[in-house]
């Protein structure tokens, strides 16, 4: 069975205008900068595969949700591959220092980009979706599956941590426990 030509043209008309948004999100999800385009392309292919059975009302939020899922899958795949290649004892779960180290490897990116990579993932994604992609708190809540209050807390703490990191001050906001968020 082949999909109709009109089907894919309609899909592209509805989705291509969100390419900038998805690229911005993918750039903050991809394990390696070289993977960003692949992540965006995979997002579009998965979305297209689902397009014939679903026409979402909010196409941008729908694509962002798929992009987040693709990013998680990619990270799991990388994690499995890294584990398989590791001969010695299994490595610990990466801590914030590892994330910061990975961020330093992204030489050539701006200070802000580097600072974003030092944030906990939930904050980085929340800030990216709201401040970079332009989604509302309600949309981010729908995309991430987190309560709206939690989204607002993540965004606020992430913004504060970003400002403090750029100023060269240590931030407690970024590392506050998930329990604080769950209360909201």
């Amino acid at each position: 069975m082949r999909r109709g030509t009109g089907d894919h043209e309609e899909f592209l008309r509805a989705t291509l205008r969100h390419a900038d948004l998805l690229h911005a999100l993918a750039a903050r999800l991809a394990v390696r900068p070289a993977d960003v385009s692949d992540l965006v392309q995979e997002t579009y292919l998965r979305a297209f595969a689902a397009w014939h059975s679903r026409r979402p009302d909010d196409v941008g939020a729908w694509l962002a949700t798929i992009c987040l899922n693709v990013g998680r899958d990619e990270r799991r795949r990388h994690s499995r591959r890294d584990t398989a290649l590791h001969d010695g004892p299994l490595p610990d779960i990466p801590d914030r220092a590892d994330t910061a180290e990975a961020a330093l490897e992204r030489l050539g990116n701006s200070w802000v980009e580097t600072a974003l990579w030092t944030l906990p993932e939930t904050q980085r994604i929340a800030i990216t979706l709201m401040d970079v992609c332009g989604f509302t708190a309600a949309q981010v809540a729908a995309i991430t599956g987190a309560p709206r209050g939690t989204v607002l807390a993540r965004v606020h703490r992430g913004r504060k941590a970003l400002a403090l990191t750029i100023r060269g001050e240590p931030s407690r906001a970024a590392t506050r426990g998930a329990g604080d968020e769950a209360r909201r």
Binding site: A19, H23, V40, L45, V132, L162
Partner: peptide, 27 residues
């Protein structure tokens, strides 16, 4: 928080010029 929001917003950038062509070709 305002400063952080400004910084995050300033990091917006357009996708590379060839990305849309790549997506169109893949789809």
């Amino acid at each position: 928080a305002r400063r952080g929001r400004q910084l995050a917003e300033a990091s917006r950038e357009a996708a590379p010029p060839g990305l849309r062509d790549e997506i169109r070709a893949a789809v």
